[in-house]
Design a protein around this nucleic acid. Structure first.
Length: 444
RNA sequence: GCGGUCGUAGCUUAGCUGGCCAAAAGCGUCUCCCUGUCACGGAGAAGAACGUGGGUUCAAAUCCCAUCGACCGCGCCA
């Protein structure tokens, strides 16, 4: 008999059907046994009555067994209807259960309310934890975030490209990188597609990429990973840095709208609401930000100040978001565009929300000569980034771009306490899945 | 990396101003009972050298030191 998805069962009331899935919960009443079955489309209750041919096997089946179940889809009697629950008005009157695979006793409670684990326990048993609706909800939202970023970029005529993960050097300096053995040379895992995306932009005008980046920062915080998905964009023919900001704002707005549209159930399950993005997100220069905070100016906001600034902006404007722009030129990478009126400060920007940086970007230097002088001032060797520099020799218009961290955005949208929750297989200073360290078989 | 907190059954935790702890509870597991449950319910059982090593003491889960690990904060961070 053809498999029917649990989510489609309501269309088959009165029919004998076959479903396949996992045993979500077993409730043994003695003479009769109730089950909740789960597949990718949802859950449904099944009942094995005393007279059913399946009663013997029903006694053996345990939670998380993979099973194929045959039965009649029945309307539930009025008094047994569970309102507000998927398939709460129907149940499967089971005639046969086939065990497809048994499950060992579970290492932790998988029930909705009992799922209260140390993150460490959850990550050590990632395969099982991924079956839990709360965990699945996180990654469904992350899917929508990444999809909608891509969608919006394409709708704005951005061209997607693949940035390399193995890079020959550390053009930007600053962040720590992972070194890899590259035949007889040293190479590094990419900490950013930045230089590549600017190169590609010089040819395609508007480009974006969705790719992994790697950082060897010894950062043990709730918001740092060593391997993250970076959502990157770069666009040419801008007039001012505000054009970059507006594009990034529209992108984030689209992502939030899509999450709101497609993830209602997930947001409800995770007991969170989307941050508010008002018609025009407030922008403050770093100097103004320090004034608003009533503290003396510094090179950057501390995490505490970021949180406070977000609170103040929320109170004043209702916006959960705030742009901060105009950082000290020398504290940022060489390619960031200095404000022509005040070259001590640049036209780089960060978007903060709920106390954490979501996005950073800004206008870049597009004139070759200016880039060259920055490269020298920053103490870099022009020969080592000549491929990048050459791209700016041949008529590159004013341009800029931005980048978002997918995990951090997922964490912040869902108000998760730790970014590791927003990464399926998080990498941090200590965790690298040593439980999966056997040599992998070769793919053909 | 620095600072703080923590490490007790498969999971989540209580105990931690030393003796009443050869360690307790809830969930899970196993056995038995239960015809309408939906986190089913009821009765019982098994399950822990209290992270590891050393020390203090008549006596250590409890105090001290070291070590490993975790969590949080800071720093660092396109």
């Amino acid at each position: 008999m053809e498999r029917i998805l649990i989510g489609e069962l309501w269309k088959h009331v009165g029919e004998t059907v076959s479903i396949s899935g996992w045993v979500d919960v077993r409730r043994d009443q003695g003479k009769m046994v109730f089950f909740d079955f789960r597949d990718r489309s949802g859950k449904v209750q099944g009942v094995v009555l005393p007279a059913s041919a399946a009663i013997e096997i029903a006694k053996e089946v345990r939670n998380e067994y993979a099973v194929r179940v045959t039965g009649v889809v029945n309307k539930r009697p009025e008094k047994n209807v569970q309102t507000g629950k998927q398939n709460g008005d129907i149940e499967l009157d089971i005639t046969a259960i086939e065990i497809l695979a048994e499950a060992a006793p579970l290492p932790f409670d998988m029930s909705m309310s009992g799922f209260n684990l140390d993150l460490t326990t959850q990550l050590d048993h990632r395969a099982l934890a991924l079956r839990h609706p709360r965990v699945q909800a996180i990654f469904k939202v992350q899917n929508v975030i990444i999809d909608s970023f891509r969608e919006y970029m394409k709708s704005q005529d951005f061209f997607e490209f693949q940035a390399p993960a193995i890079t020959p050097g550390v053009a930007e300096g600053g962040a720590e990188v992972f070194e890899v053995n590259y035949f007889d040379k040293k190479a590094y895992l990419s900490q950013s597609p930045q230089l590549y995306k600017q190169i590609v932009m010089t040819a395609f005008e508007r480009v974006f990429s969705v790719n992994k980046i790697f950082r060897a920062e010894p950062s043990a915080t709730t918001r740092h990973l060593t391997e993250v998905v970076s959502l990157d964009a770069e666009l040419a023919f801008i007039d001012t840095w505000e054009d970059v900001r507006d594009m990034s704002e529209a992108t984030v707005r689209h992502i939030l709208n899509e999450v709101g549209k497609h993830c209602k159930a997930e947001l409800e399950l995770l007991e969170t609401t989307l941050p508010v993005m008002i018609d025009k997100t407030p922008s403050l220069s770093l100097t103004q930000a320090f004034e608003k905070l009533g503290v003396s100016a510094n090179k950057d906001l501390t995490p505490e100040q970021e949180r406070r600034l977000c609170e103040i902006i929320k109170e004043e404007t209702g916006s959960d978001f705030v742009y901060v722009y105009g950082y000290p030129t020398r504290k940022k990478p060489f390619y960031v565009y200095p404000n022509p009126k005040d070259p001590e400060f640049n036209e780089g920007m960060d978007l903060l929300c709920r106390g954490v940086e979501w996005l950073s970007g800004g206008r870049r230097i597009n004139k070759y000569e200016q880039l060259m002088s920055h490269v020298r001032e920053w103490g870099m060797d022009p020969n080592k980034i000549s491929m990048f520099l050459e791209a700016f020799k041949y008529g590159v218009p004013p341009e800029g771009g931005f980048a978002l961290g997918a995990e951090r955005m997922t964490m912040q949208i869902l108000e998760l306490k730790n970014v590791r929750e927003a990464s399926m297989f998080p990498r941090d200073m200590n965790r690298i899945d040593t439980l999966l360290s056997a040599e992998e078989p070769r793919n053909e």
